[in-house]
Amino acid sequence: MGRVLETFINGITKSNPTFILLLGLCPTLAVSTSLDNAIGMTAAVMFVLIASNITVSIIKKFVPSMVRIPTFIVIIATFVTITDLSMQAYLPSLSQSLGIFVPLIVVNCIILGRAEAFASKNSVKDSFADALGIGLGFGVAIFIVSFIRQLLGTGEMSLFSWVLFKVPGLSDNPMAIFILPMGAFLVIAFLLAMFRYMGVMEGE
């Protein structure tokens, strides 16, 4: 049990995909404009990550290393397409704002990276814990980035069209640069520097 828990916690801290492994930065930069997007993207990535990690771990004994990558890609692409179609059917507005980044989860290196580096070598239980940890790690990271960008870029905090609070002064003159792509780079750079300085998230 200790090992499973450790794998799970490592995913969020020691091998945080965004802040430590620096994997999957493209969706983090692109969709972190609002908390709604962050939550939607996290849900999609987590589902695909958990499903593909479990599947890869189950079939790892039958897959010769020669066809390893094609097999993993087919499995990941299947789950991504399922996610994409379900989102379009049940959450059309979220699907509209995430746009192309849902189908692009197929080539997200977090997912293939975990299938290759972890799930193809470990038990189903450990792979599940790893997927959950890494997924949450990605979620925490994109949530922090989105929070800062939305707060500074729009001057108000809202969640699913429900306004939480407004910053007086800032909501009339928001710093729109933070909503633009450049803001994403700035926020991620400052966060990385801060985490390194504080030593909170020391890499392996």
Partner: peptide
Amino acid sequence: LLVTMIVTLSMTALIIVNSITLPLI
């Protein structure tokens, strides 16, 4: 054989999902 089997399985899954979601989309 293995890759063919996996592709067939994933196609079957996608056909089912597509037939459910298409009218809603």
